[in-house]
Computed example of a mutant assay.
Amino acid sequence: MKLNINTDFTKFPRAISVLAADKAGATVPYARAVLAHDERHLRRRAIETETGDKVLVDLPEPVALDNGDRLVLEDGRQLEIVAAPEDVYDIRARDAVHLTALAWHIGNRHLAAAIEAGRILILRDHVIKAMLEGLGATVSEVREPFRPVRGAYSGHGGHDHGHAHSHAEAHADAHGESHSHSHSHSHSHDDHHHHD
């Protein structure tokens, strides 16, 4: 959501804590905010409810919110977070072992993925689609809420690698070519220096 640079944030109700969906109990939320998966990574940002009201999220640390989680306002009211429908691929495999292999290839490219018992969902990318089909997957275009697996870093505002190197790898995999993993990452946790 884009706000004018002169927006007076003090006029907005302020959300100061998070309540997980399974902890919400019988409390009825006063409103809902429908957010895409990347918009559900929050710390300090204004968001908009379904009715067009603004709320300033002002949390002590970044969080990755899931469908049904609540933001708790200073006055005690709860705002429910709803996962927005997104354009994704529904990926199916021959069997459980094949699905696991597909999940490995997707994970190896640092792509956000929702993994279920019989399928995987990822955001649409035609190059990745070609790779997966080359690996024997059945890939369909669907539009539904995208709830990717939260990584080990999700408590620190999520972990979005991006996939600048994914296309070259995907082309190689789709055509049975080998490729070396000599990608340079700018992520601090990938740049470990070991000393004897």
Rank of each mutant, 00 (worst) to 15 (best):
A31G: 08
A174I: 03
E74L: 11
R14H: 12
Y153H: 12
I81W: 09
K54Q: 12
E48T: 08
S166R: 02
L56F: 14
E61D: 13
G155A: 14
T49E: 04
L79R: 10
A174R: 01
Q78F: 04
A46V: 15
E169A: 04
I91C: 03
A15W: 08
H192V: 11
Y89R: 01
D66L: 14
A168K: 01
H98E: 04
E80P: 01
P145T: 06
L99R: 15
L3C: 04
D75I: 03
S154C: 10
P145S: 08
A84S: 10
T49H: 09
P85A: 08
V127R: 01
E74R: 13
H105F: 09
A15C: 05
G158T: 03
T51G: 07
I115M: 14
K129A: 14
S182E: 09
T51P: 02
H98F: 11
G52T: 05
D90L: 08
V127C: 00
H165W: 03
D58K: 10
P29R: 05
A64D: 05
A24L: 09
E48N: 02
I91V: 12
Q78N: 09
L79W: 11
K129L: 02
L65W: 09
I120N: 04
S140G: 02
D53S: 11
P13Y: 06
G155D: 15
M131N: 02
I91R: 01
R32L: 04
H183F: 09
H167K: 10
A31R: 08
V72I: 15
L65Q: 11
P148E: 03
K23R: 15
N6M: 10
Q78L: 04
D58Y: 14
L59R: 11
R44W: 06
I81C: 08
H183D: 10
R40L: 06
V55M: 06
A21N: 14
P62F: 02
A137L: 08
L135M: 15
G25R: 11
H156R: 13
I128V: 13
H185T: 06
H167P: 01
H187V: 00
A152D: 14
A164C: 00
L132E: 01
I91W: 02
A174M: 02
H126R: 07
V18A: 11
T10K: 07
L99K: 14
L35D: 05
K2S: 09
V142E: 08
D69C: 05
I47R: 07
H41L: 12
R14I: 15
T100Q: 13
H163I: 00
H171T: 01
A83F: 12
V18Y: 13
H179C: 02
R92D: 03
A96T: 12
E116G: 12
K54E: 03
P145A: 08
K2W: 14
S17K: 12
A101I: 08
A114T: 01
